[in-house]
Each structure stands twice: as structure tokens, then as C-alpha cells.
Design a protein around this nucleic acid. Structure first.
Ligand SMILES: [Mn+2]
Ligand SMILES: [Mn+2]
Ligand SMILES: [Zn+2]
Ligand SMILES: [Zn+2]
Lengths: 145, 145
DNA sequence: TCCAAAGTGAGAATCAGTATCAGTATTGTT
DNA sequence: AACAATACTGATACTGATTCTCACTTTGGA
């Protein structure tokens, strides 16, 4: 999805929720488009010094509510935020247990689909209706070795 | 692994770290053995009213450090704690996005092993040394439908 | 141009989790 | 058994990421 298409889609999502696509929100989306993984608040603010922390938090919450942003929790003290998968692609996260850094990665479509079907079987055995999965790889990144 | 074996193993892990296996720590381990998924602080305290919150937090941290307990973060505001996988079995979590409840589930060994090899391939392509994976299924539990 | 509704940002408040510390329990030693 | 050294406990204070508040600003429609 091109930058313009993402922008369009975010605009639509916000409009449908009767929210405006303000400059601040555009800047947050731009920040999230950068980087190789989900970003922390500190990273977002570092990327765009014109942003105010309280507004970014508020806008991330709204963007998440309308389905444009996903909040990622990895285990350290900070949440991380990324564009929702329907604006990017389905992917997963490599989480460095040493420095906490998070980067995206993807699996073959075939692995994904066999995984998905196994998951649905396991889920329905427990009366659970599955909507999505989350798969993280824990280990050590290149820098930390 | 039987109750006694788990107890033994936890005792060894603590001893090796020059920590004692006190009554309070035994009670925490007992609480974690109950339930069908990782437990929140509130659930642990509800299971055993004799426990004091600050000591349970401290002891969970120690039990995690010695490798007896794993801390799980699912996205709501509370951490959850479970016995480490080498004291139970490798498994994953169904997370209800409505009520926040978390229950364990497992996949076929075969699915696990093909998944693991795909993950290692993807990881090494990015200079990442993988040590374990984490797989959650998000959806709606039986109660919430 | 005006108005009403939505958004902003600086600071206060919240709250899960952590640190402190005086008192208690356990271990090893004589 | 008595003692000292060390670990543990639990009430409480503190921390820090996130959320809330509210006076002010911006936006979009009439
Ligand atoms: Mn996947
Ligand atoms: Mn697995
Ligand atoms: Zn690292
Ligand atoms: Zn539920």
C-alpha cells in the first residue's frame, strides 16, 4: 500500500468514526511508517519533535479505536505502536531479550495457513472463536552479540 | 511432572541461586499450579488470602529470576504469571479480547516443529538468534458470546 | 463571519509494579 | 541451647508509563 493509499485509508477510518485527520494525527502516522518495527512513545517523539506527548497518547488511542494502529506489548515497560496490518501486511516480531528492540519479520504464506488451520482446530476445541494470532520470536539481536 | 517433582525442581532452582523455598513461595507455586492459564496478582491473592501483595510481587520476581516462573503480558493492564514451561509443557494462550481471560492450549508436535524451523530461517536472515517463541490466539471465549 | 463541536497540550492524577526498612524467621556455628 | 549472620516479610512510600482534566485553539458548516 502506497503512502497515499495508507493516508486515504486512515482518513476514511477516522471519518467513519466522526474523527478528524488533523496534522498531529498525520504526523503520528508518518512516524509509524518509519522504522523497521513498532515504535515506542520515545521513538515517535524523537522522530517528530513538534509532537506533544499527551496528544500523541490520545491520538494513538483514537487511531487504535478506529483500526488504523495496533498497540504492541512486548514485556518491557513501554507499549509500542504500529500501523494496523490491513494498512501494511501480516507479520510478526523479533524481540531482543537483551536490549528490548523489536523488528518485523514474515513467514511463508504456506506456513501461515497451516498454522492458522491448526490454531482454529485448537481454539474451537475450547469453545473459543479465534480472530487473529500473534507470534513473537524471542532471542538476541545482531547488536547484542 | 507431578506436584512433588515440580516442588523439588523449584527447590533446586532456588537453592542454586541461594534463595530459600519459604512457605510464602510454596503458596505462590501452589496457586500457579491451579487455574487453566496464567494468573494475575488478584487471582493469586484470591486463591490464597494469607499472601501479602508486596511479598508475592517480590517472590514472583525471584521465582522468575531463577527460572521457575514466567511472566506473561497480554495487553491489558495486568501481568500474569505461570510456572515455567520446563515445569509444565510448552503451550500457548487463548486471549479473550472481550473479558481479558487467558487459557492455555497446545499444538501438535508436528506443527510446532515445522513452525520452529520456519522461525529459525526467518530469524537468521535478520541476524537474530532465536531462543523461543510465543504464540497467542486472540478471539472471544465461550463466556463472552 | 459566527458558532458549536472537536482537538490540543501542559500539568495533575492514576495505578501496577518496585524499593525501603524495621521487624521476624532461618541457617550455621559454637 | 544461645548467638550471630543472613534471608525473608509486609506495611508503606515511591516510580513511571499512561490517562485524565480543562482552559485554550482550531476546524467546518451555516
Ligand atoms: Mn502469522
Ligand atoms: Mn509453540
Ligand atoms: Zn538487542
Ligand atoms: Zn471472554
Amino acid at each position: 500500500m502506497s503512502d497515499a493509499e495508507v493516508d486515504n485509508e486512515v482518513a476514511t477510518l477516522l471519518r467513519n468514526a466522526e474523527q478528524r485527520y488533523t496534522t498531529g494525527r498525520r504526523r503520528v502516522v508518518t512516524a509509524l511508517r518509519h522504522g523497521t518495527g513498532p515504535l515506542t512513545m520515545a521513538q515517535i517523539l524523537a522522530h517528530d519533535a513538534s509532537l506533544s506527548q499527551s496528544s500523541v497518547y490520545r491520538n494513538l488511542t483514537i487511531l487504535e479505536e478506529v483500526g488504523a494502529v495496533t498497540r504492541i506489548v512486548t514485556g518491557d515497560d513501554f507499549s509500542r505502536y504500529e500501523l494496523a496490518e490491513h494498512l501494511t501486511e501480516h507479520h510478526h516480531h523479533l524481540i531482543c531479550t537483551s536490549c528490548g528492540d523489536v523488528v518485523d519479520f514474515s513467514l511463508d504464506d504456506q506456513v501461515e495457513s497451516t498454522l492458522d488451520s491448526s490454531l482454529h482446530v485448537a481454539a474451537s476445541a475450547l469453545g473459543f472463536v479465534a480472530s487473529s494470532h500473534r507470534l513473537d520470536l524471542l532471542g538476541t539481536c545482531q547488536n547484542c552479540r
